[in-house]
């Protein structure tokens, strides 16, 4: 199959590009003004335009949770929303969890519990766990497993992930 287009056919195929949109995002406390094509996902805006590569792209289809970030305090999959739709929002990524006093307690707990192997899912797991704790719905280890099911770990570090979250939630580990 011919894969390279001749210059003429390229022009004939070309449709005028829709205009870019001004998008204002406050990310980890810093205001960013971007000019983005409408199809730029929030995930691509973070990784490709702001070089915040802590947020990972696993499936790009809402099926793995690697891209989880907090938008206006709520955990979402950044691959299934457009940056332009989030104009004006306040976003927290894995890069924004630590502060001058050190790592976020969940980051520390993930290290202490060895809650990963390759680490690819970890930023999404941690952001998701921050959202989980803010939602305040998980009371038991089973609740954590259910409400963290949107974060797949291909390495299967689940038991340690649950332990780490449970410790930070100061739940009874036998619950």
């Amino acid at each position: 199959m011919q894969t390279t287009l001749s210059p003429e056919s390229r022009t004939s195929l070309a449709t005028p590009l829709p205009e870019k949109h001004a998008v204002k995002l406050t990310i980890n406390g810093t205001v960013h003004h971007l000019e983005l094509a409408p199809w730029t996902s929030l995930l691509d805006a973070l990784r490709e335009y702001l070089h915040l590569t802590g947020t990972k792209k696993g499936c790009d289809h809402g099926q793995c949770g690697a891209c989880t970030v907090l938008v206006d305090g709520k955990r979402i999959n950044s691959c299934l929303t457009l940056a332009v739709m989030k104009d004006g929002s306040d976003i927290t990524t894995i890069e924004g969890l630590a502060d001058e006093s050190g790592l976020h307690p969940l980051q520390t707990a993930f290290i202490e519990h060895d809650a990963y192997q390759c680490g690819y899912c970890t930023p999404g797991q941690i952001c998701s766990a921050v959202g989980l704790m803010q939602e305040g719905r998980a009371k038991t280890a089973d609740d954590i497993r259910e409400l963290m099911s949107g974060n797949i770990c291909r390495c299967g570090a689940y038991p340690h992930i649950v332990d780490a979250i449970q410790e930070v939630m100061q739940l009874d580990p036998n619950a």
Binding site: K74, R75, N77, E135, G150
Partner: peptide
């Protein structure tokens, strides 16, 4: 249905 993240969206 879905996951906590998806239900938030």
């Amino acid at each position: 249905g879905a996951s906590a993240q998806l239900r938030n969206m």
